[in-house]
Amino acid sequence: MTDSMRSDHGTVVMKRGKRERLTDAAVQMLHEQGVEKTTLADIARAAGIPVGNVYYYFKTKDDLVEAAIGAHAQRLRAMIASLDELPTPQDRLKTLIGGWVGQRDLAARFGCPFGTLSSELDKRADGLDRTAAEVMQGLIDWSEQQFRSMGRTDSRDLAVALIAAYQGISLLTNTFRDPELMTREGDRLERWIDSLGRP
């Protein structure tokens, strides 16, 4: 929805549009600049909203950080719902890996969108670190279900290994500014998924 759309609840639609724009801008700016460097003014500018209006929707920067975590969680749920439409757990896991590889240029510039945020929040221990951890836990839990569906009794260990491999290659891809590192690791992970299904 956009700010100019009207419905029976016209003002609610307008508020929701600006709130969503601010949340999307927060996701982008926190990824590109990090939590500490990003200001409310940066987020307002990226959203195209006067900075004075931000306080109507979010009282503090931490409120916006929490909204950004919520947006990541929502995107993860949507991605999982889409992956769950695929016929086999191998297809789902390999498509997940393909999505990561598809973001390799972004990872080379700024790192993993959620991994870098989680890492930064972990240093704060103000509750937002645990909120972020719950989102990451959701991806691990889903991955575990896929490995379990493949008949693996070590499904939890495999899920942690998969997510750890992605986070690690995201860090290296960003450190060396080399998207091809992500491509090569994606190929390796797909071969690994295929090998796990063999008797």
Rank of each mutant, 00 (worst) to 15 (best):
K18M: 10
R19Y: 09
E20R: 10
E20S: 11
R21Y: 01
R21L: 03
T23Y: 10
T23N: 11
D24G: 13
D24E: 06
D24Q: 08
A26F: 12
A26E: 00
A26N: 05
V27D: 03
V27S: 12
M29P: 12
M29F: 07
L30W: 04
H31Q: 03
E32C: 14
E32S: 15
Q33F: 08
Q33R: 04
Q33P: 14
G34H: 12
V35G: 02
V35I: 15
E36G: 10
K37C: 11
K37Q: 06
T38A: 03
T38V: 00
T38M: 02
T39N: 00
A41H: 01
D42S: 01
I43E: 01
A44N: 01
A46N: 07
A46Y: 09
G48D: 05
I49N: 10
P50C: 04
V51C: 07
V51S: 02
G52M: 11
G52I: 01
Y55N: 13
Y55L: 04
Y56N: 02
Y56W: 13
Y56V: 07
Y57N: 00
Y57D: 00
K61R: 02
D62K: 06
D62C: 06
V65H: 04
V65L: 06
V65F: 03
A68D: 02
A68H: 14
I69V: 04
A71L: 11
A71P: 10
H72Y: 09
H72Q: 09
R75N: 09
R75V: 14
R75D: 14
R77M: 13
R77W: 04
A78M: 14
M79C: 09
M79F: 05
I80V: 08
I80H: 03
A81P: 07
A81K: 02
L83G: 05
D84W: 05
D84M: 10
E85P: 09
E85D: 15
L86F: 11
T88P: 02
P89M: 14
Q90T: 12
D91K: 08
D91W: 15
R92K: 09
T95G: 02
T95I: 07
I97R: 06
G98A: 08
W100S: 07
W100L: 15
V101M: 13
G102P: 08
Q103M: 15
Q103W: 07
R104M: 01
R104G: 07
D105F: 15
A108G: 12
A108I: 01
F110N: 14
F110L: 06
G111Q: 04
P113D: 14
F114C: 13
F114T: 06
G115P: 06
T116R: 15
L117Y: 00
L117V: 00
S118V: 07
S118Q: 14
S119G: 06
S119Q: 11
E120K: 10
L121E: 02
